[in-house]
Design a protein around this nucleic acid. Structure first.
Length: 195
DNA sequence: GCACGGATTTCC
DNA sequence: GAAATCCGTGCG
């Protein structure tokens, strides 16, 4: 492919309000220069914002701990963790240092290097070979980066409640999930019953 | 030191 | 509806 992304997004981009960052990341390009020589690229089509210590869906709700320290730290740092013992989820720290926030990358559209399916936050990290080694790594330099994309017009952006956070009470209803309307690579919300 | 449950996905 | 399967957190 001849597609070439823009320059990496700089730390000041991530210092904005996490809601703005989550919205603005739509259309940006996730790039992983793997040590095996493969260059994985995907266009971000779905994100979620986790905003502040008071957000009961955000890991930082427990305050500053060894685990959440990264979220309170400087913006533009990767936050990768293992969920349910089997899936890595990839986030980027937002807001200035001292204010905890993270943007979960939930869906990408494959551009190059990617094999297999990418819908869903756990699947896309597998497809792009993102692992714990990227935790706490800056995403504007290094092997895993986010580059500027073409931008997505407001008319193509949908918002809604975040997925899998029903336990968070009123916070679960915040429309802090952003995706490109009708995009096929947006994660499917599974049926709560049979499928 | 131990019990509990989760920003998920898949199968019955 | 529940398993798979690891670890952060809370409590003792």
């Amino acid at each position: 492919m001849s597609f070439s992304p823009g320059p990496p997004l700089q730390p000041n981009f991530y210092a904005q309000d996490p809601l703005v960052v989550a919205r603005s990341l739509l259309g940006a390009v996730l790039v992983h220069e793997h040590s095996d020589g493969t260059r994985y690229m995907g266009r971000i089509v779905e994100t979620e914002a986790y905003r502040g210590q008071e957000d009961q869906a955000c890991h930082a709700k427990v305050g500053r701990t060894p685990r959440t320290e990264t979220l309170f730290g400087p913006p533009g740092i990767g936050y990768v963790y293992l969920i349910y013992g089997m899936y890595h989820l990839f986030n980027v720290v937002a807001w200035p240092e001292g204010k905890a926030a993270g943007i979960l990358i939930r869906g990408i559209e494959p551009i190059s290097g990617i094999t297999g399916t990418t819908h869903g936050p756990g699947r896309l990290t597998r497809a792009m070979k993102i692992t714990g080694e990227h935790h706490k790594q800056p995403v504007w330099e290094g092997s895993l980066r986010i580059h500027g994309g073409e931008g997505v017009p407001e008319s193509q952006v949908s918002t809604g409640p975040r997925v899998g956070v029903d336990y968070a009470g009123e916070w679960a209803m915040k429309p802090w999930r952003y995706w490109i309307t009708d995009h096929p690579n947006v994660s499917a919300v599974p049926n709560k019953k049979k499928r």
